[in-house]
Nucleic acid binder design. Structure first.
Length: 325
DNA sequence: AAATCGTGGGG
DNA sequence: TCCCCAAGATT
């Protein structure tokens, strides 16, 4: 073991946060934690991890569930494709002669929703395979160690594989990520507290590495109608990639309410009483700033209980605005 | 291969 | 209030 590896692993063992999945050996639980952690902070993932396991304690339970139940457990966690893929994954594995998670990076990588990072994380943490997991933390830590401004994924992966402790790949991967999450942070990194600062070429100007990526959010306006009556609130299943599989309030892009009302009247064969505005809801997605003008009106047709359907946070905000949740 | 997918904490 | 962006994957 190199001094570098020794110092970081010792630091990790002394300073790591006590996270629920760190006490687990069950590969399914490791997998769930890694999928939940995709683009998600630890603090936000923990309650979902607990709730999800309570509802789906193993792969079999998950495979046997309806997608809508799975999405309900995922409700609020965002990036719902993760839940759809996890459900698919469980069914694919359950359909095999030996219904267990595959134990190698290569075969994990073939499963839906498992990309290079997650397959490497599960292979190393759950199965001890020496593969480096490269996430945003690792990218930042290595970029600073090397003083790289714009490394490619291939460069990062190659360097990460070199640095990897083959004896303790699971702890090693988590150690690098833990360092990035708690010490080598995007802003105001705590270099004096860093266990491997003596090897770092970027510590003079850590925030220069890696160069920040450009993002832009486009502003979009929309209208939504909350139709509500004695038989419940009118909710529609959402199709397509955005919030697919969840339910939601009837909504349309733009400012015009007319076309939306016409569609609803046609879909349900019922004219709709002129809606009243009840306010505006603002909600930011990754690449959109959404401003939704919310209306409400009476509805005598069949409806739903919003609590019984998986809903996005956007729809929950809209329903709250109309006092229907 | 660039664009897209949610949400919430923190500066 | 606004902007950043987090244990990425998919198409």
């Amino acid at each position: 073991m190199t001094p570098f590896q020794h110092d970081l692993l010792e630091w990790y063992r002394a300073h790591r946060r006590a996270l629920p999945w760190r006490a687990e050996r069950d590969p399914y639980r490791i997998l769930l934690s890694e999928v939940l952690l995709q683009q998600t902070r630890v603090g936000q993932a923990v309650p979902y991890y607990r709730r999800f396991l309570e509802r789906f304690p193993d792969l079999r339970a998950l495979a046997g569930a309806q997608l809508e139940e799975v999405l309900h457990a995922w409700q609020g966690a965002g990036y719902y494709a993760r839940a759809r893929n996890l459900h698919k994954l469980a069914q694919a594995v359950a359909a095999q002669p030996r219904p267990d998670l595959p134990a190698s990076y290569a075969r994990l990588r073939e499963l839906p929703g498992l990309g290079p990072y997650t397959a490497a994380a599960v292979a190393s943490i759950a199965f001890g395979e020496p593969v480096a997991a490269v996430d945003g933390n690792v990218r930042r830590v290595i970029s600073r160690l090397m003083a790289w401004e714009n490394p490619t994924l291939a460069q990062l992966q190659a360097r990460a594989d070199q640095l990897l402790s083959a004896e303790h790949p699971g702890d090693w991967n988590q150690a690098v990520m833990e360092l990035g999450a708690t010490v080598c942070t995007p802003r105001r990194p705590a270099c004096p507290a860093c266990p491997v600062a003596r090897w770092c070429q970027g510590k003079g100007a850590p925030e220069c590495y890696p160069a920040p990526k450009a993002r832009r959010q486009k502003a979009v306006t929309a209208v939504a109608v909350v139709l509500r009556g004695a038989r419940g609130v009118l909710l529609e299943p959402r199709r397509g990639r955005v919030l697919g599989g969840l339910w939601g309030v009837p909504m349309a892009e733009g400012e015009a309410l007319g076309p939306l009302l016409e569609r609803l009247a046609a879909d349900h064969g019922t004219p709709i009483a002129p809606p009243e505005p009840v306010g505006t809801v603002r909600h930011a997605f990754s690449h959109r700033k959404l401003e939704v003008r919310v209306y409400h009106s009476a509805w005598e047709g069949p409806g739903h209980d919003p609590a019984s359907k998986p809903l996005s946070q956007l729809d929950r905000k809209i329903l709250r605005q109309a006092q229907a949740l």
